[in-house]
């Protein structure tokens, strides 16, 4: 095996890196988190079962993306309760993995955010992910707009330090 997951510890790293973004990617197609987790679990199980023979000619990320798509299609075909157009999944572009990248980036951001102070993290997420303005956040948290701005500035500075060497974000 030459994929960089020759032992259980490196496989665990792979799992922890890609499980969450893949679940969210699948959920964006089938809109069901529990089934999305099952699909991604099955994908990793196939990868684990074939670890001694599998030759991945692209990147592990590309392989996981494609394998997850295939597992998702199988799951949809077998399930009578999911009404999703398989063609729309088949035609998801592969080049550059544009569909998966935002989920990987978001996952890495979420991990990095966990290292920030809680107040910084909440204010940053309300502004950057929920789209609330400084004024709205200030009213919601009973603080000044300047205080919101300071918190966001500190969060961004910390994130920049944490993520500067992250190969998933700054390729």
């Amino acid at each position: 095996m030459n994929q960089g997951f020759s032992d259980i510890n490196s496989f665990e790293t792979l799992f922890r890196t890609y499980f969450e973004p893949l679940v969210n990617f699948v959920n964006s197609r089938i809109n069901h988190y529990e089934n999305s987790e099952e699909i991604v679990q099955d994908t990793f199980m196939k990868l684990w079962d074939s670890r001694d023979t599998l030759v991945i000619r692209t990147s592990v990320k590309s392989y996981l993306y494609q394998a997850t798509k295939n597992t998702m299609i199988d799951f949809i075909r077998k399930s009578k309760h999911i009404n999703v157009d398989i063609d729309s999944i088949n035609h998801i572009p592969i080049e550059g993995e544009v569909d998966l990248d935002p989920y990987i980036i978001r996952s890495e951001l979420e991990k990095a955010l966990l290292t920030l102070k809680e107040k910084n993290r909440i204010i940053f997420k309300l502004n950057k992910f929920e789209g609330l303005t400084y004024k709205e956040i200030a009213e919601h948290l009973n603080m000044s707009e300047r205080g919101v701005e300071d918190n966001i500035s500190r969060a961004v500075k910390s994130l920049k330090d944490i993520l500067k060497d992250n190969k998933h974000i700054f390729k």
Binding site: F19, N24, N27, Y33, D101, P102, I105, R106, I169
Partner: peptide, 15 residues
């Protein structure tokens, strides 16, 4: 990058 990942519906998973 933030803008790219902002528009997606995302939920943390208990990895």
């Amino acid at each position: 990058i933030l803008a790219q990942s902002k528009d997606i519906h995302y939920r943390s998973v208990d990895t």
